[in-house]
Amino acid sequence: MEVTFKTATNSDRNLLLTLTKEFYQLEHLTYNVEVLNKCFDEVFSNDNLARIWIIYADREPAGYLVLTFGYSLEFHGRDALIDEFYIRETYRSQGIGKQTLEFVKTTCQNLGIKAVHLEVNHQNTRAKSIYQKAGFVEHDRYLMTNWIDREK
C-alpha cells in the first residue's frame, strides 16, 4: 500500500469537513462547521500556526493530521502538537499510523521543531502503544484546559 501525504489547501475543505466529522463522532467531540471553517481559514492563510495533511492510501483519503506550532523553554525552542490525527477504520492496522508518525518526525526535523507532543485518551491503549513505539513518552502531569472566550 502506497501512503502519501498531501498538504491540505482551501480546495480540500469539503473533504476535511467530512474527515473531521467522522473523527469528532468517534471521539465524542463537538462538531461545529462554523468554528472549523474559521480555523481552516486561519491555518490556510498562515502556515506558521499549523499545517494540515490529508493521508492517502493508494490515492484514497485514509485520514488527516493537524500539526500546530508553539514555543517552549522546557523543550528547548520551537515545539509542535499533533492536534488531530485520524485514520479511517478501514485503513487501520495497516502501518499507516506508523508511517504518519515517521512523516511527522521528518517534517518536524526539517522545520527546526525540537519536540512534538500529542494527547491520547487514557482508554485508547492501542494508540498509546503505537505512540510509545514511535518514541513518545508519558509525563507525570495532567493536561489541563481553560477555555478563554470559548466559541460553541
Rank of each mutant, 00 (worst) to 15 (best):
T30S: 12
A115E: 04
G70Q: 06
T9R: 14
G135Q: 14
Q132N: 13
V120A: 09
F44E: 08
N121A: 14
R51E: 08
W53T: 03
G95A: 06
R13G: 02
L19F: 05
E60D: 07
E119K: 07
H28S: 10
I54S: 06
I113F: 08
F69L: 12
K38A: 11
T145E: 00
V35Y: 13
A127S: 06
H28R: 09
N121Q: 07
R126T: 05
S72Y: 03
T107F: 14
T90Y: 05
A115L: 06
T145C: 00
L143A: 01
Q99G: 09
R51V: 02
N121I: 14
C39E: 14
V120N: 05
N110Q: 14
L101E: 02
F5Q: 05
T107D: 01
N146T: 01
V120T: 04
E89Q: 12
L111I: 06
G70P: 02
L16S: 00
W147R: 02
R51C: 07
G77Q: 03
L17V: 10
S45E: 13
E84G: 01
S129T: 10
T68K: 10
K152P: 06
F136W: 10
M1E: 06
R51F: 06
E138F: 09
N48Q: 10
R92D: 00
F69D: 03
L101Y: 13
G95Q: 12
I148D: 00
E151I: 08
V66Q: 03
F75R: 11
I113M: 07
T7R: 04
W147T: 00
I55M: 01
T4K: 13
F85Y: 10
I130N: 10
V43E: 01
T145Y: 00
D58N: 13
R78I: 05
V33D: 12
H117T: 05
N146F: 04
N14V: 10
D41R: 10
R78S: 04
I96K: 02
I96P: 01
Q99F: 05
M1A: 04
I87Q: 01
K21R: 15
D140G: 14
S93C: 04
K6T: 11
K152T: 06
I52P: 00
D12N: 15
L16M: 11
L65T: 00
T68C: 03
Q25H: 07
L36N: 11
D47V: 08
I82H: 02
I113E: 09
I54A: 07
Y131D: 03
N121V: 07
K98W: 07
T18L: 10
R59K: 13
Y56K: 13
V33A: 14
K105I: 05
H76W: 07
L101M: 14
L81H: 02
N37S: 13
L73N: 02
F69T: 01
A127F: 15
L36V: 06
V66W: 04
E151N: 04
D140V: 09
F75Q: 12
E89H: 08
F85K: 02
G97T: 09
Y56L: 13
V33P: 01
K105Q: 06
N46R: 09
V33I: 15
Q25E: 13
L26P: 02
L143D: 01
V33W: 01
W147F: 13
L49Y: 12
I148A: 00
A8G: 01
H76Y: 11
